[in-house]
């Protein structure tokens, strides 16, 4: 069953083409890694999928309202509000029927119950990111979009975060995440989408990308793949 489909998706900012003709689909419980060099258009693509940017061209098939959870690269939370207040606010804005229950659930799932009353500005970077992700999941979305979710986390925090995301995937949530960490893409994603200068260069499994370059190491395969295509 498909949770999300994109056909010929493009985005222009004036004369600059940030994303050009990207098509892919994401099934229920699937994990897709969007990889590419800096400026490839990963964040722009995720923003279009999240509803933050209007595509210039193309078609998107998205789940109904509240069906997409978005976790931006930089934590997007109110530092003067407590953990619980942030969750409650976004639960109400997402139109969650029982905001109190949703807040309780996310505090439990993120292990932040003990810090529920603390102002987010006083939390560590890892805990702030957990709040950031919890807000993305507050409406129990069918699709979770994450933009470089682990870039500011230490290895232990990364492992805990992926443990948490995998639990959601097992529950049927589809996940698309942008990352620079090729090992992370190989470890957690069932599919990868390679972007460079806004163009979609590859869509398939991580093993397929390695096979295309006759490389077992996905990072080396990725670099060689881009170099062959002038990136």
């Amino acid at each position: 069953m498909t949770s999300l489909e994109a056909h010929g998706l493009s985005k222009r900012f004036g004369d600059r083409v940030a994303v050009h003709d990207v098509s892919f689909s994401l099934g229920r419980g699937e994990v897709l890694a969007i990889i590419g060099p800096n400026g490839a258009g990963k964040t722009t693509l995720l923003s279009m999928l999240a509803g933050g940017l209007e595509p210039s061209e193309g078609e998107l098939k998205l789940p109904p309202a509240g069906g997409i959870g978005w976790v931006p690269q930089q934590t997007a939370v109110y530092s003067k509000l407590s953990v619980a207040e942030n969750l409650r606010l976004f639960a109400r804005l997402e139109g969650v029927a029982d905001a109190g229950a949703a807040v309780d659930r996310m505090l439990e799932q993120t292990g932040l119950r003990a810090r529920a009353g603390d102002e987010v500005g006083r939390l560590s970077g890892g805990n702030r990111q957990r709040v950031n992700i919890a807000i993305g999941l507050i409406s129990e979305p069918a699709v979770l979009l994450l933009d470089e979710p682990t870039s500011a986390l230490d290895p232990r925090q990364r492992a805990r975060l992926w443990e948490f995301i995998n639990d959601r995937v097992l529950a049927g949530t589809s996940v698309a995440f942008a990352t620079h960490d090729i090992a992370e893409a190989e470890r957690y994603a069932g599919a990868v989408l390679v972007l460079a200068d806004g163009e979609m260069l590859f869509a398939g499994s991580p093993a397929g990308l390695g096979a295309a370059e006759h490389e077992n190491d996905l990072e080396r395969a990725f670099v060689a793949f881009l170099a062959e295509r002038g990136h």
């Binding site: 999240a50 933050g52 109110y78 976004f90 804005l93």
Partner: peptide, 13 residues
């Protein structure tokens, strides 16, 4: 500054 504008503007508000 808190990066919440993009979150709000993706259809919430």
């Amino acid at each position: 500054e808190e990066n919440t504008l993009a979150r709000l503007r993706r259809g919430l508000v």
